[in-house]
Design a protein around this nucleic acid. Sequence first.
DNA 1: ATATATGCAAAGACTTTGCTATCGA
DNA 2: TCGATAGCAAAGTCTTTGCATATAT
Lengths: 135, 135
Amino acid sequence: MFNEKQLRMTPQRKILVEELRRLHSHPTADELYQVVRRRLPHISLGTVYRNLEILSRTGIIRKIELGGAQRRFDGDLEIHQHIRCTECGRIDDLPAGAAITNCDQDLVEGTGYEVVERRVEFIGICPECRKGKTE
Amino acid sequence: MFNEKQLRMTPQRKILVEELRRLHSHPTADELYQVVRRRLPHISLGTVYRNLEILSRTGIIRKIELGGAQRRFDGDLEIHQHIRCTECGRIDDLPAGAAITNCDQDLVEGTGYEVVERRVEFIGICPECRKGKTE
DNA sequence: ATATATGCAAAGACTTTGCTATCGA
DNA sequence: TCGATAGCAAAGTCTTTGCATATAT
């Protein structure tokens, strides 16, 4: 799992991934830090940030970049979408299919959420940057 | 436009809205500050932040909360979706319909973007917070 | 052996806030 | 008039980074 790209399998990384996969709460770096600290009392927050970044670049975990101030992380690599609470900020998984089919209902099946808004974001490379890459 | 909710129509607010409506670049608070400063050299960045927040809560402008580190703002109140460049961070409007119909093409018509990823986010009120509101 | 990773603390980026003077309605 | 707002600067929050030491391979 780590030996691609000369990544070293340190206890910090191993436990970060284990805990993130176990959690289904899409934690922030700091939340995960609090959890991991129970097993590695001396781990530093800097290490958590550094590794979450590296691990998500490597594709071992996913970085969730959506609304809300803080960055969150997800150990679930399956493609899926999210629903976020405006009040408390928690993020849940959107049941497959719900994203499209339940657009006109106030409640999303299986989540109990009352939906206020839906957002779509495409991510890609803009014309200028594509030009830069081919040159 | 401002007299709802005892909002005062200060020159700062008027010009912020004017400039934001004129720009189509989905600027960050700081970018808009730079622009507005040409007309109001003494405006402070704090005022920009404060007003962008107030104006978006009031519905006069929109706050864009998507991926990318910084918060961005949009003077266009029509419901529409965005496409963001992974390389330079710019955000463009997604042509209506493109979001759904062109999912399998690499290039989104009319934008020139090469699409890498699509994200859907629902925003709402989670079961716990809904409970709290009715009690 | 040695390049990579850690812990720590300092620095950075972005945003919010407290305070006093000012200004719009 | 007088409560809302501006400007300013300080503080806050989240994240990144430099550096010396430790460690995985």
